[in-house]
Simulated assay, not measured.
Amino acid sequence: MKNSFLRRRIFEIRAGVKDLVWGIKNPESFKRKNTLSPIMGRFSSYKFELLSGIKSEDYLSDAFYFNQLEGKINNFELSDYFNHKGYLPSILQSNAIPLLINNIAGIVYDADDNIIDASLVAEKLRNDPVNDEFVIKRSVGTGGGESVEIGNAEKIIPFFNLYRKKKYDFVIQPLVKQHDKLAEFNPSSLNTVRIMTLAYDGEVHHVSSMVKMGGPGGRIDNVSAGGLCIGIKNDGSLTTFGFDCYLNKTTQHPQTQLEFPDNYEVPYFNEMVEVVKEKHQLFKSHGIISWDVSVDNNGYVTIVECNTAWSGLESHQAFHGPVFEQHMSYIKNINL
């Protein structure tokens, strides 16, 4: 019931209880107002005021965001297809990570989309003329870094056999080469830029962005897997603080001790935003998408994945305040 009506109602109840408990512990929140959720939204208004330092009535609660915005403008019957890493290169047409191996419905395809026997995969990986390390991941359901493994051929081959046995759809990809300045945050992980876009009335809008990085010694960038995120301002510079998955604030990476200076500029940030705004136009059934993007030293933008369902909002509001403030009229109209 991943995107079912029942799951969303259960989520709304749980989120409401969580917000109310937080509000009781923070009684000042009862004095706040909220434009979209006059009763329960007041807790989000105060919570994100404390985190971002920006007082506003235009914050979105989790329950409103997932059920009254994302739930209304995204077609979840298509989300698994759009999120499927085995189909993503065909959907995007460019700027996707190449697929070295693509296992769909038990059939193995090579980099040229030719069907090959599964027994040939080990030899292909061991004799790859370009790549020493690979990423193997399930094609759907890799939130928090679940079912994502990185390593040389000898490490990847057992997971290939395991995922085949479990009848997963999965892909094997080369490692993405990231820009040196992005690698500074945490050299052991691919540190991606999360960009949220909103499409309506024939335009695609950049809503909010942040950098995601792996935790100490981590190879993946997932915040829920021990990593951190840092806000990116509209000019490409960083906020001077970051958050972990519990919204604990920090001013430096725990492994590299790299501080988050406000004069740091994310390389090719505008170019990344323009690429995902262009690609969003291909997703006509989805009004809001969160993109994980990387860029190399030459400015080539790679879309690591797109998230069309259950993609979080909290960190964006914690960094930047009411990120949908300029779109309130549209949001109100779809909820009349």
Rank of each mutant, 00 (worst) to 15 (best):
F159N: 03
D128A: 09
V108R: 00
Y109G: 01
N102W: 02
I97W: 05
V121R: 08
V130Y: 13
L162G: 00
F160G: 02
F159G: 00
A153V: 13
E133V: 15
L125G: 09
D112Y: 12
I150M: 09
E154I: 06
G145Q: 03
G106S: 03
Y168V: 00
S139N: 09
P89S: 05
A122C: 09
K137Y: 14
K166N: 06
V148Q: 01
E123R: 10
G143S: 07
A122M: 08
I97H: 01
V130W: 06
P89E: 05
P158F: 12
G145Y: 02
V135H: 04
E149N: 13
V121A: 01
S94F: 02
I156S: 05
F134Q: 00
N114F: 08
L120T: 07
S119C: 14
K166V: 01
A111S: 12
V135A: 04
F159C: 03
G143F: 12
K124R: 08
R164M: 12
N114Y: 11
N103L: 14
G145H: 05
D112R: 05
Q93N: 05
A122Q: 05
K165C: 00
G106D: 11
P98K: 02
D169M: 13
N127T: 09
E133C: 10
P98S: 07
V140I: 15
I116P: 05
I107Q: 15
Y163G: 01
F160Y: 12
G151E: 12
P129T: 06
F159M: 11
F159E: 09
N152D: 15
L125P: 02
I136A: 02
I116Y: 10
E154P: 04
E149H: 07
I91T: 11
G143T: 08
F134C: 02
Y163I: 12
A96G: 10
L125A: 12
E133Y: 11
P98E: 07
D117Q: 06
I157L: 07
V108A: 10
N161D: 07
A153F: 14
S119W: 12
D110S: 07
D132I: 00
S119K: 12
T142W: 06
V121I: 15
V148K: 05
G106I: 07
D128N: 14
N102F: 02
L99A: 11
N161T: 10
A96T: 04
P158R: 05
L99E: 04
G144R: 03
V140L: 08
L92G: 00
L162E: 08
S139C: 12
D169Y: 12
D110N: 15
N161V: 04
Y168E: 08
D128G: 08
D132L: 01
I104P: 06
G106V: 06
N95I: 04
N152T: 03
Y168A: 05
L92E: 01
Q93F: 01
V130S: 09
S90N: 12
I157T: 03
E146V: 12
I116F: 05
I156F: 12
E146W: 01
T142I: 07
I157E: 00
